[in-house]
Amino acid sequence: MDMEQSRQKRSFAPRALPHEEYFAPGHRGCQGCGPALAFRHILKALGPNTVVAEATGCGEIISSPYPQSSWRVPWIHTAFENTAATAAGIEVAYKVLMRKGRIPEERINVVAMAGDGGTGDIGLQALSGALERGHDFIYVCYDNEAYMNTGMQRSGLTPFGAFTTTSPAGKVSKGQSTWKKDVPAIAAAHHIPYVATACISYMSDLYRKILRAAEARGPAYLHVLAPCPTGWRYPSEKTIEIGRMAVRSGVFNLYEIVDGKKRLTVKVRERLPVSEYIKAQGRFRHLTDEDIAYIQRRVYEEYEALLAEAAQI
C-alpha cells in the first residue's frame, strides 16, 4: 500500500512509509532523542507540501545551526512563546495570496511545533488565540516534560515527583510538586475539530493522527509524548521502551477528540504498574514507595475517569 492509499484509508503499514526524509539526518539532537523522532515521522506523514513554524527549544536548536539546517521543508523559527501566532500569520498569508491569485492554489499544511514549555506555559496565550480564531493549521506539542534546551528546568507539564534543575529533590522537596497540566483538555475547550494525544512509541497511531489532523479543516492540536533520555535519565537506547511504558502504565493515555467526541485509540489490556515506568528513569530516583503509591492511585483514578468519559460518548 503506498502512502497515498494509506492516507486515504487512514491506516498505516510500516512498509508504506515514504522513503523520503524531510528531517535530515545529522541534526544535533542527543542519541535517542524522542522529539527528533517525532519531527522525522510527522514530516514523513505530511509530505513536502508542508511549512513548519517552530518555537525556541530543543527542536529548533538541534536542527538549525546557521548555516546548516535539517529541514527539507520550509521552516521558520522566530521566538519561544509565539509559534501559534507565527503559524497563524503564515496560514492567513497563504489564504489571502491564493485568493488574490498571487500564488498557486494548493493545499499547504501549516504546522506549528513547540515543546511543552513553548506550548503549555509561555506559549499558552498565543496557542489559545490561534485555536479560538480557527486557523487551518496543525499544532504539534512535542512533550519532553521539561525545558530541556535550557538545561532541564521544570515546566507546567513536568510530572509530579520528577526531579528537574528547578524542582530539585531535597530534604524538604520531592521534586516537582504539581500534577501535569492537561494541555490537550485546554485545547479541546476551544471546540476545535481535532485534538489528539500520541507517543513516538506508537508510530502507527501517531501517523494516523497526523493524517487526520491534516484532513481537519480548522485547528488540529496534537500532543506528542516524546521521551528525552538526557532529561529523564535513562539509557538512550530505551526511548521507545520508555514511551511504551508511559502508555501501558496509564501515565500517558492515547486518545483523540473528533468534533468533541473522545475515543481511546490505544487500549491497554494489562496495565503495567506505574512503579516500573518510574523506576526506569533517574528523574524519579528519589521517590519513596509511598510517593509511588500516591502516583499510582492518581494515575489509576484518571485512567478510569478517562475510560468512563470515552465510553459515555
Binding site: 511549512v51 513554524a53 521558520i76 522566530t78 521566538a79 512563546e81 509565539n82 501559534a84 501566532a85 507565527t86 503559524a87 497563524a88 500569520g89 503564515i90 496560514e91 492567513v92 498569508a93 497563504y94 489571502v96 495570496l97 498571487r102 500564488i103 496565550q125 498565543a126 489559545s128 488565540g129 490561534a130 479560538e132
Partner: peptide, 18 residues
C-alpha cells in the same frame, strides 16, 4: 490576542510573502 502575537503574526505573514 496580544501585541506580541500581532507582531508574530505579521512576521509569519511577511515570511510567507504577504
Amino acid at each position: 490576542e496580544s501585541e506580541h502575537s500581532a507582531m508574530s503574526c505579521c512576521i509569519g505573514a511577511a515570511a510567507a510573502g504577504a
